[in-house]
Structure formats: C-alpha cells, structure tokens
C-alpha cells in the first residue's frame, strides 16, 4: 500500500508529445480512473508508471520513492492487461505463481497466497487448467489473481474489461470495485468508457491530447465540468453546448458570469413544463423520439439557430415527431463556459 505521485510527467515520441506534463497525487488506497478518448495519453501514462515506457521528463514516486529509473519488477506494482497477457503454456496456478517464484518467495508463502487469491476470485477449481480452457471472464479473474498474489503497492489496470461482453463487463466492474475496497490497494485504472469511469472511481482524471482536463470525484466532474471537453465527454447522452447568441428572447445574460459565450445544459436538465424557478425557454421542433425504457431521448432542433440538441425526459411523453414544442431549463442548471479559453466561466 502506498501513495503515487506524478510530477510534471512528460513523454514524447521523437517530436510528438504524448503526455504533456501531468501532475497527480494518488492517496493511499485510492482508486483513480484515467479516462479520455483514444490517443489522449492515458495508456502511455499508465505504462510509464508501470515502467514499460521510459519517461521523457518529470518524476514518478511510488510510496515516496522515485522509481523513474527502476525496472517494472522493482516498482512493487502489478498490472492487469487489456488482453490479460496470461502465459498460454502455463496452468492458472503457474500463471499466479510465476511472479512470486521469480522473487524467490518461499514455497509455503506462494501456496498460501495462491490459495487466498483463488478463494477471493473463486477460481480455485480452475487452478490446473490452461488459459485457453477458460472463458473470457475466467481469464479476467486469473489476470486479476496474478496481480493480487503479488500483494503490490499498487494495481495498474489497462482497460481490463474492454474484451468482455457488455453483461460480463458490468458484473466484473462491480467485482473490481468490491475487490479494491476490500484489499484497499492504491489503484490506477485506465478506460475510455465514461460509465465505467464514473462507477469505479474514487477520483476521475479526465485527459485529452496529453493533458489533464480535470481531476475530481465523479460527482464533481459531472456536476461541475471544468472545461468544454469534459462537459462533452462525461455524461451520456453528452451535455448540450449551446452558444449564448442562440438563446434569443431569454433574459439570461445578466445571470451568467462575464465571459460566458456557451452554456452547457445536461439532457436531463430540460423539462417540458415551465418550472417555478427562474428558467429559460427555447422554441424547438421535435425530430426524433427514442424511447429507451424508463426514459426517452428527445432529439429536437432549436428554432433560433438550427442546432440539434438532445433531451432526456422521464417516461414516454406523447409528443408527435415533427411538432413544435418549448423546452425549459432552470438557470441554476446552466453550465457557463467561455469558448475562448474552453474553460468554465464561473470558476473561482
């Protein structure tokens, strides 16, 4: 168990920067999720922490020790790979033991740890099988087991669930969360799936093109996205970003912080009836109604600018497609952004 600190961490491949100076402090036992679109540098960042990529500049501290020059095995970390990377010619037991044997762990200790990990992950019956005889979910467990037996200072997860089908992914997500809570091991978890990120994380690190856009708890990031990128990336369907100029007929500019030229409105912040609180009203025409069970997604086009936005409304409203409606949003639910800086306009 340990803290992890990244200080001005940079990585470039030749002239191309992949990670452009990241600072991050991970508390002991915390689960940090690095999330962002592909190519944003999140995997590179994780691989630098693991020691699988060299560091161009900056430093990495695990448990207060600078490990930039250390080999992966000397960093006291364990990694779970996207394709599991189980040794195909070894049995499950062999896979679990390999790292411990290399470190010269005594036999009884190895047996104890393998038994414990197998109990935790319920793979005791699979110990003598080869990886190819396992299903995707079982391989995933073995990969986790290989990390657990090491009893490392930190777990590093590199998109561990992206090879599983949707149902199994949800189930394993819950299990990873429970496991991490139980073991209280500091963890870094990389994913491009924002739902996975939201549900797993103690704190989220949203990355875009090599830079950290925002660090915060999932609720913080969702409720107060710091940049336009985060606003558009976190949340499904994504936040609607509407230029202030197309809010014609609404007396909103007075209530917005100076410098605001884009307002973000979450799909579920819209209502179809005018609320009691101060609100804005937008005239729009309905293009498509998508019922998705408990709620419906309403695709409408704003009359003022022709911009398409998405609303999420509870139940299945009786609205004819190609009809004109007025949608309302409380002023308190608006997220003011400055297009120029790309950042929140009301940040302290």
């Amino acid at each position: 168990m340990a803290t992890i600190s990244l200080i001005d961490l940079m990585k470039s491949y030749g002239d191309i920067p992949a990670v452009k100076g990241v600072n991050l402090d991970v508390a002991d036992g915390e689960l940090i999720v690095l999330v962002g679109p592909s190519g944003c540098g999140k995997s590179t960042l994780l691989r630098m922490v693991a020691g699988l990529e060299t560091v161009t500049s900056g430093s990495i501290e695990i448990g207060g020790r600078n490990v930039v020059k250390a080999e992966p095995a000397e960093r006291d970390i364990a990694m779970v790979f996207q394709n599991y990377a189980l040794y195909p010619h070894m049995t499950v037991r062999g896979n679990l033991e390999y790292g411990l044997k290399n470190r010269g762990t005594p036999r009884e200790e190895i047996n104890r740890r393998v038994r414990e990990a197998a109990d935790i992950l319920e793979i005791g019956a699979l110990l003598d099988r080869k990886p190819r005889q396992l299903s995707g979910g079982q391989r995933q467990r073995v990969a986790m087991g290989r990390a657990i037996v090491r009893e490392p200072a930190a777990f590093l997860f590199d998109e561990p669930l992206s090879n599983l089908d949707a149902k199994l992914r949800v189930q394993m997500r819950v299990e990873i969360r429970k496991l991490q809570r139980r073991l209280k091991t500091t963890s870094l978890y990389v994913t491009h799936d924002q739902l996975e990120a939201m549900t797993l994380a103690d704190r989220l690190v949203v990355m875009n093109s090599g830079l950290v856009e925002q660090i915060g708890t999932p609720t913080e990031v969702y409720d107060r996205p710091a940049t336009l990128f985060v606003a558009g990336f976190i949340g499904s369907p994504p936040m609607n970003l509407i230029p202030v100029s197309s809010l014609s007929g609404n007396e909103v500019s007075a209530g917005l912080p100076s410098g605001t030229d884009i307002v973000g409105i979450r799909p579920d912040a819209f209502v179809l009836e005018q609320p009691a609180e101060p609100s804005l009203a937008l005239e729009a025409s309905v293009e498509l109604l998508e019922p998705i069970g408990g709620e419906s997604h309403l695709h409408v086009r704003l009359n003022s600018s022709g911009q398409s936005i998405v609303l999420s409304v509870p139940g299945r409203p009786e609205i004819a497609e190609v009809s004109d409606i007025v949608v309302h949003a409380r002023l308190a639910d608006l997220h003011p952004f400055s297009a120029q800086t790309g950042r929140r306009a009301d940040n302290p």
Partner: peptide, 14 residues
C-alpha cells in the same frame, strides 16, 4: 507473440 506477454513477464520480474 503479443508484446503484453513480454511486459507481463517484466512486471513479474523476469
């Protein structure tokens, strides 16, 4: 042979 296998082995101290 996937690179991850080599990386996993490195993490495992090989």
């Amino acid at each position: 042979i996937p690179d991850e296998l080599m990386e996993a082995a490195r993490v495992d101290g090989a």
